Computed example of a mutant assay.
Amino acid sequence: MFATFGYVTFFALIGVWARYGQNLLVQTVFGRGFPWAILSINVMGCFLMGFLFFETLDRISVSPELRTGILTGGLGTYTTFSTFSVETLVLFENGEPAKGLIYVFSTMVLCLGATFAGAWISRSI
């Protein structure tokens, strides 16, 4: 258990540095007129999560603690959208497309709604 926390902490540091660095780089290159930085982070994180989730499950032999550190710590701090994407993929692959679609639409609606509500409350105080 302590090894898992250690790996999560270590890879979280790498993930957050990668996110911040990519954010700065993309904003420097493309500006701030459109959220290209976060879009690129989410897309790259989703790709890495999809790739590494199955590589470390099927092909590369790593300890469960290290796998958790990489996927949860590293990619979880790099982007949480990657976790959402894998959970959705698993629902579809398990033959539950209705649950997958409900999860996608409810996540989008609820998360955007929560963002707007938080912003509204913050601005109202």
Rank of each mutant, 00 (worst) to 15 (best):
113 G>C: 15
105 F>Y: 14
78 Y>G: 01
82 S>G: 15
8 V>I: 07
104 V>N: 04
109 V>H: 04
71 L>P: 07
46 C>I: 12
125 I>F: 07
92 F>T: 01
25 L>Q: 07
111 C>A: 07
123 R>E: 08
98 A>N: 04
8 V>L: 12
2 F>D: 07
57 L>S: 05
123 R>N: 13
116 F>D: 02
62 V>S: 03
101 L>H: 00
10 F>D: 00
6 G>F: 07
30 F>S: 10
89 L>Y: 14
73 G>D: 09
64 P>R: 06
37 A>H: 04
70 I>F: 11
63 S>E: 05
120 W>Q: 03
13 L>K: 01
40 S>Q: 12
55 E>F: 00
103 Y>F: 15
4 T>W: 12
10 F>C: 02
18 A>G: 04
55 E>N: 02
101 L>D: 03
21 G>Q: 15
117 A>G: 05
55 E>Q: 10
1 M>E: 15
60 I>Y: 08
25 L>Y: 13
41 I>R: 01
9 T>I: 14
19 R>Q: 15
24 L>A: 13
107 T>Y: 07
4 T>D: 12
8 V>D: 00
23 N>H: 15
12 A>K: 00
60 I>G: 10
4 T>N: 10
63 S>K: 04
101 L>M: 13
108 M>G: 02
87 E>F: 13
64 P>A: 12
43 V>C: 13
33 G>E: 14
42 N>L: 11
27 Q>C: 07
109 V>E: 05
91 L>Y: 12
74 G>S: 02
106 S>K: 03
76 G>Q: 01
8 V>K: 00
67 R>L: 15
109 V>K: 05
64 P>S: 06
107 T>V: 01
64 P>E: 11
30 F>Y: 07
66 L>R: 06
99 K>W: 09
68 T>S: 11
44 M>V: 09
79 T>W: 03
98 A>Q: 11
115 T>I: 02
42 N>I: 04
87 E>M: 12
125 I>C: 13
78 Y>E: 01
24 L>G: 04
117 A>I: 10
87 E>N: 14
2 F>K: 09
87 E>Q: 10
34 F>C: 05
76 G>I: 07
123 R>C: 01
79 T>D: 03
16 V>E: 01
50 G>F: 09
36 W>R: 06
62 V>P: 00
13 L>D: 02
13 L>M: 13
32 R>F: 11
74 G>V: 15
34 F>Q: 08
53 F>C: 07
36 W>Q: 02
2 F>S: 12
88 T>S: 05
117 A>E: 05
112 L>E: 02
51 F>T: 06
34 F>H: 13
113 G>W: 08
94 N>S: 14
72 T>G: 03
65 E>I: 15
58 D>I: 11
114 A>Q: 12
40 S>C: 07
35 P>A: 08
40 S>D: 05
58 D>E: 13
70 I>Q: 01
91 L>A: 15
60 I>D: 03
104 V>W: 00
56 T>S: 13
93 E>N: 14
21 G>W: 03
15 G>R: 01
16 V>T: 06
12 A>L: 04
103 Y>S: 09
12 A>R: 01
118 G>F: 08
39 L>V: 09
76 G>C: 14
78 Y>R: 04
89 L>V: 13
109 V>A: 11
1 M>C: 14
22 Q>T: 15
43 V>P: 06
69 G>Q: 09
71 L>G: 11
